[in-house]
Amino acid sequence: MAKGVLVDITKCVGCGSCTVACKLWNDMKFSEKEPTMGPEAKLSANNWTVVRFNEVKKENGKVWRFVKTQCLHCQDAACASACFAKALQKTKDGPVIYYPHLCVGCRYCMIACPFNVPKYEWDKTFPLVSKCQMCSTKVAKGEAPACVSVCPAGVFKYGERDEILKEAKATIARDSKYVQEVYGEKQAGGTSWLYISDVPFEQLGFNTKISSVPVSTYSHNFLKYTPVVAVSWGIILTGLYHYTKRRNEISKDSGKNVKL
């Protein structure tokens, strides 16, 4: 049955163990320009998960809340429906997995994802799409994802999605400090990763405008155009990226603008 992870935002102390565990398990590079923690933390090709720092008003003062962010592994994943090459696949275990050897680099998944999760390896010669795999190989063995296993503060619960959803609802019903909503229960047709919080989700940078209709329902309609569009877009965009990057670097080196 499909697994899920419950993230209890009220318990996170912002240690970032989860971000490092992801790097170590998946052999991802660290980059000073792409922080995995703090107010500037953003998902990127190298950062499958980040812990975003938020300072929010609460009662009569300010509080700090950390939001562990990664792919939410939608039950009906828009990225997977948008991918004509079947490089992204929703598994019955829960994870939405990416197969690099099938990917043609069209980046339709990036446009389709309502949570803006898949990233492109702009810096590589042969770029791929990149996103959290929910540690599918661990999940397949019956183990929790790397980030989930390492948290010292007990932020996560891992298990059958149905059961942890029930638990999440029981927790928020029991304790009035929680916002009475489980984020991910309905968003985009429901996600494998669920969140509970004591601060309204929109104040923590969650997209709360997402409809509960699975986005994949829309994306099927434009799929028929993708092959041609994908190939040309892929090449043009990549070329432009390296071209501008190179130009910027040269102008940085010589201290003035250089025409190429």
Partner: peptide
């Protein structure tokens, strides 16, 4: 033909690739 990621834990000291190191405990904030 493998999916992305998940090849195991680094540094590899004392590890068999893809096994979960039991010493891993997380850290202070």
């Amino acid at each position: 033909q493998d999916p992305a990621g998940g090849k195991g834990w680094l540094p590899q000291q004392y590890q068999v690739a893809s096994s979960w190191p039991v010493q891993v405990k997380g850290r202070i904030p």
